[in-house]
Design a protein around this nucleic acid. Sequence first.
DNA 1: CGGGCACTTGATAGTAATCAAGTCCGGTGG
DNA 2: CCACCGGACTTGATTACTATCAAGTGCCCG
Lengths: 237, 237
Amino acid sequence: MSKHTHSCEHCHHQSCARRVPIFSSLDDDELSWVSSLITTKKYSKGELIIMEGSNPESLIIVNKGKVKAFKDTQEGKEQILYIFTEGDFLGEKNLLSQQKATYNVETLEETHICLINKKDFQQLLREYPDISFKIMSELCNRLERLENTIENMGAKKIEARVSSVLLEFLDKYGKHHAKGTLVELPLSREGIASYIGVARETVSRKMSRLQDEGVIRVIGNKKVIILDKEALEREIQ
Amino acid sequence: MSKHTHSCEHCHHQSCARRVPIFSSLDDDELSWVSSLITTKKYSKGELIIMEGSNPESLIIVNKGKVKAFKDTQEGKEQILYIFTEGDFLGEKNLLSQQKATYNVETLEETHICLINKKDFQQLLREYPDISFKIMSELCNRLERLENTIENMGAKKIEARVSSVLLEFLDKYGKHHAKGTLVELPLSREGIASYIGVARETVSRKMSRLQDEGVIRVIGNKKVIILDKEALEREIQ
DNA sequence: CGGGCACTTGATAGTAATCAAGTCCGGTGG
DNA sequence: CCACCGGACTTGATTACTATCAAGTGCCCG
């Protein structure tokens, strides 16, 4: 057994490593070793974790909470690119290519992260090629999501973009509910707007319309019940 | 020396393998071996290489020519996602994740491609981890390009999108010229339009305006001289 | 030289951004 | 506990921009 298995100060990390898809091919001993490499950090809501142009020296894994990755444009707008949640990793660009961060990352709620040092991470990759495969696979998934986003933004009506986001949030954050699926929105109206590239008023209007049509039910600013998932899927086609 | 080094039927492939960034860490012997795994194929302009939903069983490397990767929407529009040129690989999604093709790929001119069988490719990855690193690095680059595209489409004016494309083409296809840089456009106006997500008439108008302002000079339908690169960069900011 | 196709240019209409009030809700302090 | 305050959201009116529709125009190729 690894000498790290019973190291109490790392016990709470192991669950982190165990939950992360990129380490899913490792056995208990290996996970213990990985856990020993991890340090943790906690952030409260609204803190900036990574700043565009900086040079993070570690792989970051989200252990609890949510963060948004976004770019600031000179026109004063904000374009949200990703929302990362439990199990997602980030900062890989700085470790795999030799690049500076190309976007900001900010917490959307209280968030705990795990950090793996650049050298340790690179050693892991060499020792366990399966981790590389997992990462490549995840990078392909991200590419696919971005490709779909581009298709939405370039070739589809705004109705379709709103429906897409709602379905995406439904998949990620939906919970069963009497008449449909209850979704806790990770973003404000303004956040949704800068995620799909429209004005915040437009999001309000489209969501109001969807409510009038009986497709969704809006509960305050942070919750939505999806009553008719198929209708949303029809909007996207 | 590898027994393949003097195998004439593979000589013309070796240059392909040698030119490809993902194999740049291999030595001559290893390259010869890779070359022996490669088969080639030629396409004329306008042929469909990959169809959305199909399941390509090989990694494809562009050896000569250009191809476009695009999605067809139900609204009848086409969204172009990538233009791949000499040295670029594609089809990785089907080999790294277990996914079907999520976009169509069509040649923009006469194109020669190299094919590496799925099993051979996976063996290569296991034997030479550096190839995995190169691929991860390239995937990160693609992510970054898509992230920038999304920023353009979501948060920037159309002027900026046109300027972005022109600068992108300038980087990839520009050649020195008396008064600026001559760029052979890989896409028609309609192609450019579906690359940046606007109507083809809008591309015409914006380019006319840029010509009136003395920033570019349009020569027929397929060439442009960039006279004032800085002006384009200012449009993007 | 003629035909066709891609492109340009102009006119119009539709849609979303912007500007501008309100409204709702949660939190705070009296 | 209630009243007030501020921030986020909704809704309405107007403006600006681009898509669409509709003629031309020019260029390439046979």
